[in-house]
Design a protein around this nucleic acid. Structure first.
Length: 909
RNA sequence: GCCCGAGUGGCGGAAUGGUAGACGCGAUGGACUCAAAAUCCAUUGUCCCUUAAAGACGUGCCGGUUCGAUCCCGGCCUCGGGCACCA
């Protein structure tokens, strides 16, 4: 019997499905292990060979953990709400639900062919009402909570109401609160809710007709669709993520994530420790205090002007009558700019004088107040003190508008550029003179606080998440408006389903506004929907208890599964999903709904699989194509060619002629009778004809080969191009493995006792595989497997004692062929429930042992010798070398190379 | 501009201070075969050379530490990723 991947794979996939092999439930007798993939957005293009990379890695790990005796939760689902399905609906008029479920069906059939060990009974879809009920529920909880800074956690809003009525909170006295009417009370509470409605500067995308979160915008364009984005002030639902900034930052340390990913999150959260200082500002005879934020309060003696953000609320009151017209012109100019223009013009300096002057609180000096877009309204206080001598942006501004530059570091040269001093000795700085910079920073902070001029302050760059989208295909908000007051729907009304609408086309208003009777008890319902990240923020919790209709997750299920032990997915979610999810989880933790503060304990980022495009070279103005090696002799154009008609860089000429009508009468200039194509590594995409479909690989080689090959390609976390060339190697390995069991139609396995040499091969492999899988070095495990199989083939080892453990070892990587052989070995149960073999240290140990030796009485070396060699033998060998070596007399010996049993070389200088 | 990561044969990649290039692909030669496929065996970093032996060179570049560096340290170059007026 030959190895027949298709027969085996169909057979065992059907078996696993029929027997519920991968179903799991809570089992107190076994330790749990939760392995999660970032669930896919089911796009219309289907899966290409890059998508399953992470899924294969996590599946191998899941299967390995099961063999190690863990109760493994390994689920899969779909992130199914979102813009592309809606854009498609706009073009075709189809309901997004239809396209989404079609796409899901296609994804599922592609996934099924690869032989994943998912418990499909736990599948979730974010667009399923039974699922998004809990997304809406979480939103209501956030609406109904506030962040207590003293306790540093979220608490029910009722507790804040109690506090306001008795003691007051912030600047609100109990008298004021108790005297307030309902509308005022509602407005006050809205300032504290975790999910709140507020006016903010948002990324407005005209092309998509919706606002976008910061991580959905890149270089001033929308990530989905690439439409320009502008800044606009709008009232939107927001999540108070910023309240969690400190905790999100601090608990990063406890996570087993890659350093680069943690660093990305740290940068995104952007903690900076500085000082808020109040500058009194005079305008038209009035004195108005302006608070600024700076990390370098020590440079305050170098302040020569102040700058406000154009959007700052103080701009109006600080503009003098004389400057009014000019300021208004400038504000209009800034408003008109799109985000993209603002980014691309960061080099150009713009601004306008407000007409007012501020008093430096330390020197009493009068400095002008300017307005410029280089100061951002959303960060710090939207106002800065400018120290042109020591800040490059302030410097550029001062040079442009002829403002003075006062250096405060001894000996620095600021004639050409600013001196961004992190060290040096202070001068021109009153009591700070003579101190070095580090000292001065602390001294200045102390001084400012001691004199009541300001206080230390920690700022974060992380903004609150804008939570509403003016789109259709998302979760509706369970909020209605009673006399303009946002009021939550009762939990019993959840899930609040999407209404039917006639057309998905954007008209400038939210699509839900066009729905008939979009109201609850006569009150109009919110017409925005939630963004894509809403549904993906807590899906890992739902997998623990996916059919629970009463709770997001039961206490019992949550206590058992706890958190995700291993999360595998791409880096592209570093500042989106992975921040929101952590926030969402911490919120639920604060309210006692989940037992873990952090959702994802260990996280591995798989690299991207790029495409390998092939090219042909057409001689300009002809229909003649030159082979790659000869193309420099001609003037040619490079043309992408479908990689399906190229094999090992050789073009199939007939297939090429048939590929496109315009190539039907193509002529070729060959080298050695063949047409060699050029190639390049590019993103895998349809337009470059370099997409490889996993279905095709499964048809030709089988899923086991695909799985092995994807892992063999290189380190998991590294990006690498897909090149089908090498796949024959792992396919051969599987065939060779098969031949240890079968020779033609003869079953070879015997019950003979294994020899030490055979045991050694086996145990070396067990040891290696265990080490490698724990560190995700799957590629080297497969190499070790190939070596072991080659050796065992050479030894003609067909012994059950060796082969049975070998099948278990192979099963995480190539589960179908392992399952087949496992049953052929006489087992009735799935190999899934086998036990990972233990290795015997003595067999698995290295052959070599390293001894340090003196050579010629002068130098110390270490030599590698067989384990069986005694130190005395080593000494004797080296002494013998001293006697016999021709180099010892007059030359310096640098290196003695000894391989087990043999002196190979003596290196001399 | 700032912060990460990487640079090794024709190609994907091994090697965490000790025989650089494991394993695989590709290539060349051979066995089996009428032939092909499949399979098996051998060779395969570069230079010198008819070949071999022997030797020299060799992990982006320059320097350092060490008996010994792909690996550790300092400086540069190139590529990839992230952030980008964050005061």
């Amino acid at each position: 019997m030959d190895y027949d991947s298709r027969r085996i794979e169909e057979k065992w996939q059907a078996y696993w499905a029929a027997n519920g092999t991968f179903k799991v439930k809570e089992d107190e007798n076994k330790p749990k292990y939760y392995v999660l993939d970032m669930f896919p957005y089911p796009s219309g293009a289907g899966l290409h060979v890059g998508h399953p990379l992470g899924y294969i890695a996590s599946d191998i790990y899941s299967r390995y953990k099961r063999l190690k005796g863990f109760n493994v939760l390994h689920p899969m689902g779909y992130d199914a709400f979102g813009l592309p399905a809606e854009q498609y609906a706009i073009q075709t008029g189809q309901h997004p639900e239809k396209t989404t479920s079609d796409n899901i069906a296609r994804y599922r059939s592609q996934l099924d062919r690869i032989g994943f060990s998912y418990d499909w009974d736990r599948e979730v879809r974010t667009c399923d009402p039974a699922f998004f009920k809990w997304t809406q529920w979480a939103f209501l909880k956030m609406f109904d909570s506030w962040y207590d800074k003293a306790a540093d956690k979220a608490r029910p809003i009722s507790e804040l109401v109690g506090l306001l009525a008795t003691e007051g909170y912030d600047d609100i006295t109990p008298e004021a609160w108790n005297a307030a009417d309902d509308k005022t009370k509602s407005d006050i509470l809205m300032r504290y809710r975790i999910a709140y409605q507020g006016e903010t500067s948002v990324n407005w995308c005209e092309g998509l007709g919706t606002v976008l979160a910061n991580d959905e915008v890149k270089d001033g364009l929308s990530v989905r669709g690439g439409f320009p984005v502008e800044q606009k002030k709008m009232t939107q639902w927001q999540l108070r993520v910023s309240a969690y900034a400190g905790r999100l930052l601090d608990s990063l340390d406890s996570l087993e994530w890659s350093d680069s990913l943690k660093e990305m999150q740290r940068n995104w959260i952007g903690r900076s420790e500085g000082t808020e200082v109040v500058f009194n500002t005079e305008c038209e005879g009035k004195t108005i205090p302006v608070t600024i934020f700076t990390t370098r309060v020590d440079t305050i003696f170098g302040v020569t002007f102040m700058v406000l953000a154009p959007e700052s609320e103080l701009v109006g009151s600080l503009t003098s009558d004389a400057q009014k017209a000019e300021v208004e012109d400038y504000l209009n100019y800034v408003k008109k700019k799109t985000e993209r223009e603002r980014i691309s013009e960061t080099k150009s300096v713009t601004g306008v004088f407000s007409g007012s002057y501020a008093l430096n609180p330390l020197t009493g000096e009068k400095v002008p107040v300017w307005i410029s877009e280089y100061v951002l309204a959303g960060y710090g206080t939207g106002a800065i003190m400018a120290v042109p001598a020591h800040d490059s942006r302030d410097y550029a501004f001062a040079r442009k508008f002829g403002l003075p530059v006062v250096p405060i570091i001894e000996g620095c040269d600021v004639s050409e550029e600013s001196f961004d001093a992190k060290e040096g000795r202070m001068c021109n700085s009153g009591f700070l003179n003579g101190m070095d910079v580090k000292q001065a920073i602390e001294a200045a902070k102390d001084y400012v606080e001691a004199h009541g001029l300001g206080h230390r302050k920690t700022n974060y760059r992380l903004r609150d998440a804008i939570f509403s989208r003016q789109r259709y295909w998302g979760e509706p908000f369970p909020i209605c408006y009673k006399d303009g007051v946002a009021t939550p729907l009762p939990e019993s009304e959840l899930p609040l389903l999407l209404p039917a609408i006639d057309s998905y086309k954007p008209t400038g208003e939210a699509p839900l506004a066009r729905a008939k009777n979009w109201s609850w008890n006569g009150y109009p319902i919110e017409t925005s929907t939630m963004p894509g990240f809403a549904g993906s923020s807590a899906y890992y919790l739902r997998y623990m208890d996916p059919h629970n209709e009463a709770e997001l997750v039961s206490r019992r299920a949550n206590d058992y599964w706890q958190d995700v032990d291993l999360y595998i997915g791409g880096t592209e979610h570093a500042t989106g999903h992975l921040i929101y999810s952590r926030f969402w989880n911490k919120f639920l933790y604060d309210l006692g709904y989940v037992c873990k503060d952090e959702p994802f304990r260990k996280l591995v980022n798989q690299g991207m699989i790029q495409g390998r495009s092939s090219f042909v070279y057409r001689i300009v103005g002809t229909n003649t194509f030159v082979s790659a090696g000869l193309r420099n002799n001609y003037d040619t154009t490079e043309i992408h060619v479908d990689i399906n008609i190229v094999r090992n860089d050789r073009l199939d000429l007939d297939a090429f002629k048939a590929w496109r009508p315009e190539f039907a009468d193509a002529e070729f200039i060959l080298e050695d009778g063949e047409y060699i194509c050029g190639w390049a590594v590019e993103k895998m995409s349809k337009s470059m004809f370099n997409v490889v479909n996993p279905d095709d690989i499964c048809n030709t080689y089988g899923a086991d080969t695909l799985r092995l090959y994807e892992m063999f390609l290189g380190p998991l976390e590294q990006s690498k191009p897909w090149d089908t060339k090498g796949i024959d190697g792992v396919n051969r390995f599987l065939k060779k493995f098969w031949r240890l069991f079968y020779d033609k139609d003869n079953w070879l396995v015997t019950d003979e006792k294994a020899t030490p040499a055979e045991l050694k091969e086996l145990h070396k492999l067990i040891c290696k595989e265990q080490e490698d899988i724990e560190s995700f070095s799957y590629n080297t495990t497969i190499s070790a497997f190939m070596i072991a199989v080659n050796e065992l083939s050479a030894l003609k080892c067909n012994k059950r004692e060796i082969l049975e453990p070998l099948v278990i070892l192979l099963s995480p990587f190539a589960p179908h062929v392992a399952e087949e052989l496992w049953h052929l070995l006489g087992h009735d149960d799935s190999v899934t429930y086998a036990r990972f073999p233990d290795y015997v240290a003595e067999y698995a140990a290295e052959d070599k042992v390293i001894y340090p030796v003196q050579f010629n009485g002068k130098m110390r070396f270490t030599v590698d010798l067989p384990k069986t060699t005694s130190p005395a033998d080593v000494e004797a060998t080296v002494r013998a070398m001293e006697q016999t070596s021709k180099y010892v007399e007059d030359k310096q010996i640098v290196k003695v190379i000894v391989v087990p049993g043999r002196i190979v070389n003596i290196v001399v200088k």
